[in-house]
Amino acid sequence: MLLMRPLGVYPPQGDTSLLCEAAERAAVLAGARVLDVGTGTGAVALAAARGGASQVTAIDVSARAVMAARLNATLRGLRLRVLRGDLFAPVAGETFGVILANPPYVAGGAPRAAHRLRGARAWDGGHGGRLILDRICAQAPRHLEPDGTLLLVHSEFSGPEASLRALRRAGLRASVVARRPEPFGPVMLSKAAAMERHGLIRPGQRHEELVVIRADRIAARDRAAAS
Rank of each mutant, 00 (worst) to 15 (best):
P90G: 11
Q55L: 15
R168M: 07
P104R: 10
R76T: 12
I201E: 06
D15V: 01
E208K: 03
Q139M: 15
V106G: 07
A73E: 11
L35A: 01
A22Q: 02
R118E: 15
V37N: 07
D15T: 08
R221M: 10
K191G: 00
H127F: 08
A49H: 04
A174I: 05
G14M: 05
V98A: 05
A140D: 08
F157D: 08
G108P: 01
A107N: 04
A48Y: 00
E196N: 05
R217H: 09
H115M: 11
A122F: 03
V37C: 07
A219R: 15
T41V: 04
T149G: 02
P203Q: 06
R121L: 15
R223P: 10
T57N: 04
L200V: 11
G85Q: 12
S175Y: 10
A53N: 11
A226E: 14
S17W: 12
D60M: 02
Y10H: 12
R116Y: 03
G31R: 10
A89K: 14
G204D: 06
A53T: 11
G38P: 01
S158L: 07
A166S: 13
V56K: 14
A48E: 06
A192M: 10
L87T: 13
E182F: 13
L150E: 05
R214Q: 14
I136S: 05
G51A: 12
S62N: 14
A178W: 09
H207I: 02
P111K: 00
Q139E: 15
A43C: 04
H198Q: 13
E209G: 04
R217V: 09
A113Y: 01
H143I: 10
V37P: 01
L172D: 06
A58S: 00
I132A: 13
A69Y: 00
E145D: 15
A170F: 09
I132Y: 14
L150G: 08
E208P: 05
L144N: 12
L71W: 04
E208W: 14
V9G: 12
R173N: 10
I136N: 08
M67H: 15
F96P: 09
S158P: 01
D36M: 05
A30C: 08
A140M: 09
D147K: 13
E94L: 15
A225R: 13
G119L: 11
L151A: 05
S155V: 04
C137M: 06
Y10W: 07
L133M: 07
V34I: 05
